[in-house]
Simulated assay, not measured.
Amino acid sequence: MYLPIGITTMTDQDKAIESRISEKAVDSFNDAPNARYKQIMRSLVRHLHAFVSEVELTEQEWFEGIRFLTETGHKCDGLVRQEFILLSDTLGVSMLVDAINHRHSASATDTTVFGPFYIEGMPEREFGENMAFTPGEAALVRGRVVDTQGKPLADAVLDVWQTAENGMYSGQDTEQPFGNLRGRYRTDANGYFAIRTIVPVCYPIPTDGPVGRMLDAANRHPWRPAHLHFMIDAPGYRKLVTHLFNHDDPYLDSDAVFGVKHSLQVIYEDRVSHDDLSADLGMQVPFKRACYEFVMEAE
Rank of each mutant, 00 (worst) to 15 (best):
Q82Y: 13
V93W: 06
Q284H: 11
V260E: 04
Y169D: 02
T197F: 03
F68R: 04
E71S: 03
I85M: 05
T163H: 06
P4T: 12
D188Y: 11
E18M: 15
D188A: 10
F230M: 09
P116S: 04
D208R: 01
G191K: 04
V55Q: 07
G6H: 12
P123L: 03
L244Y: 00
V26Y: 02
A50S: 14
T148P: 00
R142Q: 14
F84Y: 05
G179F: 08
A156G: 07
V201C: 05
D147V: 03
G282K: 05
L69E: 01
Y268R: 09
I232F: 00
Y268G: 11
R46K: 15
H262G: 12
L91Q: 08
R213I: 04
G115F: 01
G65L: 05
R42L: 08
A132Q: 02
F29I: 07
T72S: 05
S43W: 01
Y37K: 13
D14P: 06
R67I: 10
P33V: 12
D159I: 03
P206A: 01
T11G: 08
N166Q: 01
S278M: 11
M1Y: 14
L3V: 01
Y203A: 02
F68C: 04
S254L: 10
Q39P: 00
L91M: 13
H74N: 07
I119K: 13
T134K: 00
R144Y: 02
P123C: 03
V26K: 06
P286M: 07
I100L: 14
T111C: 10
L87R: 05
F114V: 12
A132E: 03
D27C: 10
T9D: 13
V201R: 14
L215A: 05
N180F: 13
I40N: 10
Q149F: 09
L91G: 08
F117L: 07
I21T: 15
D253N: 15
K261E: 10
R271K: 14
P206Y: 01
I198S: 11
P235C: 01
L252Q: 05
G143L: 02
D89G: 08
S105K: 14
D208M: 01
P210T: 07
S22R: 15
V241I: 15
L87E: 09
W161E: 01
S254P: 05
M95T: 12
T8C: 09
Y169M: 05
S273A: 12
D249E: 11
N30I: 04
I17V: 15
R182C: 01
V160W: 06
V285W: 06
E297M: 08
I100Q: 11
A132D: 02
F68T: 13
I100R: 05
I119A: 12
E129G: 13
S107W: 00
K15H: 12
L140T: 02
H262F: 11
R142Y: 03
K261M: 08
V272G: 00
E126F: 08
I5F: 14
I195C: 14
V211A: 06
L140K: 06
T11A: 07
I267D: 15
Y192L: 07
I66L: 04
H229F: 00
D31T: 15
Y118V: 09
P204T: 00
T9F: 04
G78F: 03
